[in-house]
Design a binder for these strands. Structure first.
Lengths: 240, 240
DNA sequence: AACGGTTTGTAACAGTACGTAACCGACCCA
DNA sequence: TGGGTCGGTTACGTACTGTTACAAACCGTT
């Protein structure tokens, strides 16, 4: 086990459970072995801070040790799109491999810690540790699949279904990290959630209230209780 | 140069130009060197034929030599989403690396040829040819960036802008393969285009007609002339 | 050349999500 | 303590896109 145990957020009222056996990232890679080839640099992050900006020279990959971040795609004309949310064990920066500069930006949504892994050293390490290469490739493939799942959701689900799906996904990811899947704190603003779901923040608010009315969840600002898991699943998966 | 020159489609009335220096895929990998490690199997494809189905055992990557294909994400309940269109020089199957079965399906939209590259052999080859590993990783990263660009478009653009962006993207890719960017044949049905753009086919029809009315393009079924490139760009990029 | 199925185009209508705006509560800092 | 900002909620009218329906054009086959 390579992950250093840290408390992800002091504000979060989520219960703490034993970590599950499988986590994303380097779980089954020996971090000490990795350190022989890669100088791991630790970075403390605070809310609102950028881990890296789009356009900045691409130099490193990052592994999130604690905290919660969003990745943001930026267009020339100012349009922006939240392409995902990342938490402990997730990789960052892999999407920019092959480029001179980072293709997107990463913003921390709360305090946390990220480990910087200089890419040239990682390349060397990958040659020495075949398992590392496999993990990195698998992480890239996984990200593609996540993106495709998002496309499927956005392309085929209405607002209610998108929000329900999103909540279930968040719950699942918290559960994988050993937190409660039935009671959690959303770490992002409504605006970020809406942007990610290709909706407006008012729509997200309305839908959340609606899910509350239907007794599927109870919401108070960022605090969410899942009251009817199967009901929520039904709403998320069924056709309009 | 590794690419065998073949005619992509006999139906397409697109003019043929000298190929550009840069193409996606293995362009700068020596195909003969690759063959020392990987048994390359050629597959003829006809319109409507699946290259592979979602759920089928994952065994190989594919490199498109000629033709035009769509990748389709499939949900349990029957919802489906076209996640992309692929042409000569593109990789297929990389999104399923790390899985036992393919995560999506690939359908040929016209006759063509794909080269099957058994994945276990590819792994070996990657260890022997560092450049190959780099190309594969770069292709994966590129796919992520393409997906993110799509997310940005779907999340921030209206129907007109999406269709305009799509046409410009198609034009660019044809140009990269040496075809005309101002006159081309769409290889997919309106339904596929609409699904990819998270719209309905009637909406796509409406918008195409409007772009025609505005003299930005001239359309007749699948045949498209770009009449006002900068006008089309303005429409694609500007905010609603 | 005629046939049936598929694909595309057009139109009227309806609905979901949007845009605007006002309000409220939490938080920060003077 | 009070103003200011930020984030979230709710109401109401609007409009873009989806829905439904139908017709025309196209394709492959007989």
């Amino acid at each position: 086990m390579i992950m250093q145990t840290t408390v992800a957020s002091t504000r979060a009222p989520t219960a703490r459970y034993p970590a599950t056996e499988h986590e994303a990232g380097f779980t089954d890679i020996d971090i000490d072995l990795l350190r022989k080839y890669v100088p791991v640099l630790r970075h403390k992050l605070s809310a609102g801070q950028y881990l890296y900006h789009a356009g900045q020279p691409f130099q490193s990959l990052y592994l999130i040790n604690s905290g919660f971040l969003k990745t943001v795609e930026l267009a020339d004309d100012g349009r922006d799109q939240v392409t995902g949310f990342r938490m402990r064990g997730d990789f960052l920066g892999a999407e920019s491999i092959g480029l001179k500069t980072y293709a997107c930006g990463v913003v921390s949504l709360e305090s946390g810690e990220a480990w910087e892994l200089p890419y040239p050293a990682m390349l060397t390490a990958c040659r020495e540790i075949p398992e590392l290469q496999a993990r990195l490739t698998a992480a890239l493939a996984q990200e593609i699949r996540d993106d495709h799942a998002w496309m499927l959701a956005i392309g085929t689900l209405n607002a209610e279904q998108r929000v329900a799906s999103f909540l279930l996904d968040v719950a699942k990811r918290y559960a994988q990290l050993g937190y409660s899947a039935r009671h959690f704190m959303l770490r992002m603003r409504r605006t970020d959630m809406a942007n990610f779901l290709a909706l407006k923040h008012e729509t997200v608010s309305r839908v959340m209230s609606r899910l509350d009315d239907l007794r599927l969840i109870s919401v108070e600002r960022r605090e969410v209780h899942v009251l009817d898991d199967s009901g929520l699943r039904a709403m998320a998966g069924m056709r309009a």
